[in-house]
Amino acid sequence: MLFFIEVTLSGLMAGVMYSLVALGFVLIFKASGIFNFAQGVMALFAALTLVGFMDEFGMPVWLAIIGTIAVMIALAWVIERVMLRHLVNQEPIILFMATIGLAYVLEGLGDILWGSDVKVLDIGIPQGAWDWLWDQGIYVEKLELFAAATAAILVIFLAIFFQKTRTGRALRAVADDHQAALSVGISLHTIWVIVWSVSGIVALVAGIMWGSKSGVQFSLSLIALKALPVLILGGFTSVPGAIIGGMIIGVGEKLAEVYLGPFVGGAIENWFAYMLALAFLLFRPQGLFGERIIERV
């Protein structure tokens, strides 16, 4: 029984790590309808920049984080100026293709600026087993607990931002209807810069957590693959969906790997996550918390 609890807890924690990546997708999709293929690479780029500031320029952690946030905001501005501005009113697939190009550009830029080596990221996040629970016979990773707490704070922050601030309300207006938002004087360009900046900051958080876990390296960009089943399950437009979806996927894949894996040769957690998400889709095509789209013909 203890082992079952341990697997479930670890699944929840791992799921929150996936949610951190999924959140970035949700923010951009919610405000602009763009599926940002580059979200994983943005997490990598942010983590590379953070480590670069710390290692190459000797910056203290707090200054390096502020510097990286500034870089991500600048990046959002450049993306809007160079890419999005010219693609207004284009088909979603065109915008999606553009983000694929963006992913390659960012990956190459990260390589040129900071190199391809594995970089150790240590900003003081506790790591290893939580001693108290360990003594009770349960293993929970401190880094993942920290990530869960961070995700909770992030969701609260995002909820306040979207619900209570003027900019947040503008973001929601754009998400609901571009034309209507424009007609009341909301600048689409400004909104896009804001939403890509926020998404960049979320990418930094995801990059820090995953980078602390495995070192900052180019395979970090592949964490986006872990976010996809979360998005399918939680819905592309729901912040709580990203969190709940992440936890369901995390628990589901861990239980499957541990209890079903040995009967089918193991290594099933990757595809099981997608299976689980697809099974949910049979009942709720818009995802758990996604908006139901009704189109009349």
Binding site: F3, S10, G11, A14, E141, L222, E257, G266
Partner: peptide, 20 residues
Amino acid sequence: LLPVDHPGQEQKATWLQVRK
């Protein structure tokens, strides 16, 4: 035998089995 799928960024289930 404990397989890990590419790229191996997430291995919690594998190591929980090792612990067990």
